[in-house]
């Protein structure tokens, strides 16, 4: 027993080293897998407040870009409005139930912390559970998709951005409706890969890729990106596509949190069908 104590006394620095490393790595991997620790991230009240102040001080620097983005959104909404008006006259005999047509509600939030250069990127916004934000909601910007809410505190939320290895966005090519998945490869914050599009489907440089209707997180038709590079994949079965992201991540300042009012209903119905 004495020898044991003597050993511990001699090696106490090494033992402490191992203990601190185990504690750190445990925190690190636990947080990556189970997003429950709100204390050690920027959804923490004090960290959130500090970053809010910092964002308030720096937001004027990119007002020009924000304006341009809003103008672009306005233009797109106008176009959509016109398209909807014309559709009403000539459309098929389909009419969405009003609860389904109005299922998406949006909430404006300000980005107060944003990373784009890591392999897994997060954003912090200044709205939390008190404003009705809950984990799993989609977040879009004036120009395109942004990410998914991961954890919320009362007044702040942390999102995994589309620039995160866990996020995959179900997408379609706007021109012909072909379905594919957009996933970030961790290299450039301007480019994202479009996966699983068969070599026999039509796609052109410059095509707009938008979110598909096959997901319950984002509304359909939100821009994901524009086809920038295009070549057949090594095995010849798919296209290797790189999109220029629609969202300008480094200069993001205002975003919309999208609440799908019927998500629980859809998810539970689908879960029941699988039983």
């Amino acid at each position: 027993m004495d020898q044991l104590f003597a050993f511990i006394a001699r090696q106490r620095a090494f033992i402490l080293f191992v203990a601190l490393e185990v504690l750190s790595l445990w925190l690190f991997f636990k947080y990556n897998n189970y997003p429950s620790a709100v204390y050690f991230n920027s959804a923490n009240y004090y960290a959130g407040r500090l970053m809010q102040v910092q964002a308030a001080a720096t937001q004027y620097m990119n007002l020009g870009r924000v304006n341009a983005g809003l103008a672009e959104e306005n233009a797109r909404l106008h176009a959509q409005l016109a398209q909807l008006r014309s559709q009403q006259l000539t459309s098929l005999n389909y009419k969405a139930d009003s609860a389904v047509a109005n299922r998406f509600h949006t909430l404006v939030a300000k980005v107060i912390n944003n990373s784009t250069s890591l392999s897994n990127n997060f954003l912090t916004i200044d709205k939390g559970t008190a404003d009705g934000v809950r984990p799993g909601m989609g977040v879009i910007s004036a120009t395109g998709v942004v990410g998914k809410v991961k954890v919320c505190s009362e007044h702040f939320s942390v999102l995994t951005s589309v620039l995160h290895s866990e996020n995959m966005v179900s997408s379609k090519i706007q021109r012909n409706g072909e379905i594919a998945s957009a996933k970030w490869d961790g290299v450039s914050p301007d480019l994202i890969n479009l996966l699983y599009l068969s070599r026999y489907k039509s796609v052109k440089l410059g095509d707009t890729v938008v979110t598909s209707d096959l997901n319950s997180v984002f509304p359909g038709g939100v821009p994901v990106g524009y086809v920038r590079q295009l070549k057949p994949s090594a095995d010849g079965a798919f296209w290797d596509i790189k999109l220029r992201l629609a969202t300008d991540f480094p200069n993001l300042s205002y975003v919309y949190v999208v609440d799908n009012l019927l998500k629980t209903e859809q998810d539970s119905l689908e879960a029941e069908a699988k039983k």
Partner: peptide
């Protein structure tokens, strides 16, 4: 806390 990576910088600095 500010980088949203609890434990990562702590491990490296220790």
């Amino acid at each position: 806390v500010f980088y949203n990576t609890p434990g990562m910088h702590a491990a490296a600095t220790v």
